[in-house]
Design a protein around this nucleic acid. Structure first.
Length: 476
RNA sequence: CGGGGCGUAGCGCAGUCCGGUUAGCGCGCAUGCUUCGGGAGCAUGAGGCCGGCGGUUCAAAUCCGCCCGCCCCGACCA
């Protein structure tokens, strides 16, 4: 195995691929388009799960599990939904040595099977709201795959809720978008723009799709999470009604929302560098690694004793590992842990032991400082906080540097063809105009930001009056 | 589906054009000694149906045909 990672500047996708493989986050599986998520990568996903799951529970949701296989006819019940998903569905036609009466679709998402059950479970307004989430795998037969960012099978969570009123469903969709964006910012150190998808970009079967959009280091946009207001589309398709307080039978209102293992890809592309993975402490499987340095057996004894003492002290508050492997030199260990994105490294050698100090090295900036052994715990805690915040600030600054207001179509095309980034443009076009935009620039409207100042202007494509800007960018 | 590339040891590759002993090199792996503050050195060793099937030939990693798989870039998507 080569020691080098392809530099970002040389080949961005190779760089990304190198990091995923060399940091042992994932590996290619024997099945086309599928990956094996290796223990180190899975540990990151598990941390994401733990934090998100807690947030879902705190907002009143409960977990459940629905089948992997969905009767094909279910998918057809919602017109837009079937149109959107059919092309990418894998279908099971045989089982038990015989052809099936009705084929099963391997779930690309679970709205249909869940709403078939909600029909049984919902009768009265007292059964609402119904707030269920499931953690599972789904399968979408994509033409082109990339580790974590787009694989044929992926892991995600999908929340599916049923409500008595339109307002409540809308509030739920917005609330979960908020949960996602707070998670992205605080935990992933990933700045995101909350916004609304255009009709062309919305979820197949939704009335409205909300999104959080982030910028990767190649200036392309990545959708990091979505939340949908499904209106009554699925309730109508599956005839899910309830008897309201006023004695009237009504269709229920629905939402669904999800984030996937794609977030691991977002994490990599947002923060990492040419030395390897960079992880925010909040999601790092290992926050601190201690690398001992010694020559003689005598030094080894002294250093390891002190290192173990430090490890024990830190272990109460942080995940910490003492790398006492004999077969590797310190230099090798430095590189290896940098490759794997461990936020903080403590170097401890004979000189440090003698002076009662330890060297603390930050993964994000490479900055080194010596601290007294007595204060290592507080210094490490502080450094981790600074890294978490520093990563966010750096990513935010990058996004801002690469976001520009553009008012002319020619200028927009030039911007997208050159360095690219987020173009903030006035828009009043329709779906056909949007299609033209994509054909001519390879970019799409990523979202209509939810929070922005009203500003009168003219649509960059049609010249029609507009009072707000949209984000246009090339996307993953 | 279009364009490009690749399949030879765990990984990265050379060898293929122009067929010919026992198929090489680097890394990694195993053992031992010396090393250890930024990817250590030496010695010894293990490890190959040369992607698959068929053909040509005295002889195929190498030539011919068919097939399979994977990666990258584009069109579709989270």
């Amino acid at each position: 195995m080569s020691k080098e990672i392809t530099p970002r500047a040389e080949d961005y996708s190779r760089w990304y691929q190198d990091i995923v493989l060399r940091a042992e986050l994932a590996d290619y599986a024997p099945v086309k388009g599928c990956m094996v998520i290796r223990p180190y990568g899975f540990a990151i996903w598990e941390k994401m799960q733990a934090i998100l799951d807690r947030k879902f529970r705190d907002t009143g949701h409960v977990n459940a599990y629905f089948p992997l296989l969905i009767p094909e006819s279910f998918l057809r019940k919602e017109a837009e939904h079937v149109e959107g998903f059919s092309p990418e569905c894998a279908v099971v036609t045989h089982a038990g040595g015989a052809k099936l009466e009705e084929p099963y679709v391997i779930r690309p998402t679970s709205e249909t099977i869940i709403w078939s059950m909600y029909r049984k479970w919902i009768q009265s307004y007292r059964d609402l709201p119904l707030l269920i989430n499931q953690w599972c795998n789904v399968m979408r037969w994509e033409l082109r795959t990339r580790l974590f960012l787009r694989t044929t099978e992926f892991l995600w969570q999908e929340g599916h809720t049923a409500h008595a009123t339109e307002e409540e469903a809308e509030r739920e969709a917005r609330q979960m978008l908020e949960v996602y964006s707070e998670f992205a910012r605080s935990t992933m150190a990933l700045p995101v723009i909350e916004g609304l998808k255009t009709d062309r970009e919305k979820f197949a079967g939704a009335v409205r799709t909300y999104t959080i959009e982030s910028m990767m280091q190649d200036r392309k946009a990545l959708q990091a999470g979505t939340s949908h207001n499904l209106g009554q589309n699925f309730a109508r398709a599956f005839e899910v009604t309830f008897l309201d307080q006023d004695g009237e039978r009504k269709l229920v209102w629905a939402t669904s929302w999800g984030v996937s293992t794609r977030l691991v890809g977002a994490l990599i592309m947002a923060h990492s560098d040419d030395r390897g993975l960079v992880l925010p402490p909040a999601l790092a499987p290992l926050e601190i690694v201690i690398v001992p340095i010694y020559r003689s057996d005598e030094e080894r004894g002294l250093v390891l004793e002190k290192a173990e003492q430090i490890r024990r002290e830190l272990a109460g508050k942080h995940t910490v590992k003492l790398d006492d492997r004999e077969q590797f030199k310190p230099g090798f260990k430095f590189s290896e842990w940098e490759m794997r994105g461990v936020p903080l490294r403590l170097e401890l050698g004979p000189r440090d032991v003698a002076s009662g100090q330890v060297v603390l090295v930050r993964r994000d900036t490479g900055g080194k400082e010596s601290v007294a052994v007595e204060s290592v715990s507080s210094a490490a805690g502080m450094a981790l906080q600074e890294i978490q915040q520093g990563l966010y600030k750096r990513a935010l600054a990058f996004r801002e540097e690469n976001s520009v207001k553009i008012d002319g179509y020619g200028e927009l095309k030039e911007f997208l063809a050159r360095d690219g980034g987020f173009a903030l443009v006035h828009w009043a076009g329709d779906s056909a105009d949007e299609e033209r935009l994509q054909e001519e620039t390879k970019a799409t409207i990523r979202c209509i930001p939810l929070s922005q100042e009203k500003e009168a202007g003219r649509c960059v494509m049609t010249g029609k009056p507009s009072n707000g800007r949209v984000v246009v960018a090339k996307a993953y």
